[in-house]
């Protein structure tokens, strides 16, 4: 892009955003005056107590939800409706049961009207990168939870989005699969250079993967603290877990979340 405004240096810019909605009785504030800048290529984790509005933030960035006040800017352009220049991964893989793994990935291309041959090549690359080779033609119900989530990740990356939004993508997986997926996501992030916003419940996951961890408070969510993760870019799983910086970061987040949820 030739026009570079002051804000264009951020991949995602959330400024002073509040979200309120009407429940049966009262007006509920889900998110209150949250501001957040994510640099291009950065990996930011968002943690917070259950139901605090973490997922709401991702919906705001993708344009699936409009803020009640404040503004959201994605890749230098204000978000006004659903954005197509992102990739989204949900907790549930949300795959089409009647399509094979590969055809689920290619749904992204079909919906966008991408060149089929090019999309096919790209899909094969991603299948290779995420270790799905040999499962291209399997239907979702024939795949394990981890495999399904890999398909969802490939689908989200097919169109080479500059921003990837992930809403507790590994929340439904067992601990071991989750660790494997963490390692793979880290590698994929390093290889693609995509900006990632990850909402997670796992403190270890949030620190292992991210450059920064945003800790939110209970609803209404406000940014409680931002933790800079001081770990090397190349992160071996076990070695990273053993580092004192990792231990201090996770301890700090655990403290914050304990303080945040422990009130009243």
């Amino acid at each position: 892009m030739s026009v570079t405004l002051g804000t264009a240096t951020s991949a995602v810019e959330i400024s002073d955003v509040s979200v309120r909605f009407q429940s049966k009785r009262a007006e509920v504030t889900a998110v209150e005056r949250v501001s957040l800048d994510v640099a291009p290529g950065e990996f930011v984790s968002i943690v917070g107590p259950s139901g605090c509005g973490k997922s709401t933030l991702l919906k705001l960035v993708s344009g699936l939800l409009k803020p009640s006040s404040g503004s959201v800017t994605l890749l230098g352009e204000p978000v006004r409706g659903p954005r197509h220049d992102i990739g989204f991964v949900f907790q549930r893989a949300a795959l089409l049961e009647w399509r094979s793994a590969r055809r689920n990935i290619l749904l992204q291309a079909e919906m966008r009207g991408m060149n089929a041959a090019e999309a096919g090549r790209r899909a094969d690359e991603l299948i290779e990168m995420t270790g799905l080779s040999g499962f291209e033609n399997a239907l979702p119900h024939e795949l394990s939870g981890g495999m399904q989530q890999r398909v969802a990740l490939c689908r989200a990356l097919l169109h080479q989005p500059r921003v990837l939004l992930m809403d507790e993508p590994f929340g439904a997986l067992d601990a071991l699969t989750r660790e494997q997926m963490n390692v793979e996501l880290h590698r994929v992030w390093r290889e693609t250079g995509t900006t990632v916003l990850l909402v997670t419940h796992s403190i270890a996951e949030s620190v292992y993967l991210a450059n920064r961890v945003i800790v939110l408070t209970r609803r209404p969510a406000v940014v409680h603290e931002v933790i800079d993760v001081d770990l090397p870019a190349e992160r071996d799983y076990s070695a990273t877990m053993a580092r004192p910086e990792f231990a201090s970061a996770t301890a700090r987040i655990r403290d914050l979340l304990g303080a945040v949820t422990g009130q009243d």
Binding site: K59, R83, H84, F90, A94, L107, Q108
Partner: peptide, 9 residues
């Protein structure tokens, strides 16, 4: 459906 909205089909 939300996913479809982000795909812009």
């Amino acid at each position: 459906l939300e996913l479809a909205a982000t795909m812009g089909g």
